[in-house]
């Protein structure tokens, strides 16, 4: 028997007002230490799913078990990296991270907090910027602070909502590499939303593909057959890369409009698992 997954989502459905649900019949599992990416077009409900996992929003139907227990609101176990960094602009970088650290360990002395914050800022390469306000930082540096703040509380799971989509290509690449390294080092469990196919193939162990909303479903789950550790400068040379990339792009361009969901053998509880190897 496989070990109990860290996250177990069953029959999740969300409806705003009346009318068609944004998504329905969403089932998935995330194992401890796994990096999962969720891909889908804008408006299919990705952010809503992430907010439900974070405990910030409630589903209209379905259950989410986290470490075997039903979710009950937000928790320090699950850290969120928000789409728009969400730093508190009146606090400097150090104080932003310290705010999270004090929440996690309220009994720590100022000295302990300062040391831990300094260490975390060092990890994301922001030691020099500790006393700067977020407004004085570039977009990439702000997102680094967001990452430091999330990782500083040692969450069991990291939730990221398109964390790099607002960054320029160069900065995005550097941050992707760093997140890949940090998460691999600590075997961090991650659920990340993206609509960048290359990003998903670099970071994710499995990729969930969602159909377009309303009434979106998880159409299939693509296993990333490129073994880790994956690095940005060579991942695209792997023989399986073109097939995987084409498969994901085909889905986004063509099949996301309800592919397979209507098919007789489509079972929302067990979406087809796609395992592509190198093209023959």
């Amino acid at each position: 028997m496989p070990p109990e997954p860290l996250v177990r989502v069953d029959g999740l459905m969300k409806r705003f007002g009346t009318g068609a649900p944004v998504f329905a019949d969403v089932y998935f599992r995330i194992a401890e230490g796994e990096f999962v990416c969720l891909i889908g077009h804008s408006g299919c409900g990705k952010t809503t799913i992430l907010n439900v996992l974070a405990g910030l929003d409630e589903a209209s139907d379905g259950t989410v078990l986290f470490a075997g227990r039903e979710l009950d609101g937000p928790s320090l176990d699950r850290a969120v990296i928000f789409q728009g960094h969400a730093l508190l602009p009146w606090l400097d970088v150090e104080a932003n991270v310290a705010f999270a650290v004090r929440s996690r360990w309220p009994r720590w002395s100022n000295e302990q907090v300062r040391a831990h914050v300094a260490e975390q800022l060092g990890v994301v390469g922001l030691g020099q910027a500790a006393k700067k306000k977020p407004s004085a930082l570039s977009g990439g540096m702000r997102q680094r602070v967001g990452i430091a703040r999330a990782l500083a509380i040692r969450p069991r799971m990291l939730l990221m909502d398109e964390p790099f989509s607002a960054l320029d290509a160069l900065t995005r690449g550097t941050l992707q590499d760093e997140v890949a390294r940090l998460c691999a080092e600590t075997r961090q469990t991650v659920f990340m939303i993206t609509h960048d196919v290359d990003e998903a193939l670099l970071l994710a162990d499995r990729i969930f593909l969602m159909t377009n909303g309303p009434d979106a479903r998880i159409a299939e789950i693509v296993v990333n057959t490129i073994p880790g550790p994956r690095r940005r400068h060579d991942v695209h040379h792997h023989p399986a890369y073109p097939a995987l990339r084409n498969h994901l792009l085909d889905f986004l361009i063509e099949r996301s409009r309800g592919f397979g969901v209507g098919a007789a053998d489509y079972d929302p509880k067990n979406p087809p698992e796609i395992r592509l190897e190198a093209a023959a």
Partner: peptide, 9 residues
Amino acid sequence: WLNVARTLE
């Protein structure tokens, strides 16, 4: 910002 605070309990 409220959500940040909420996720930090």
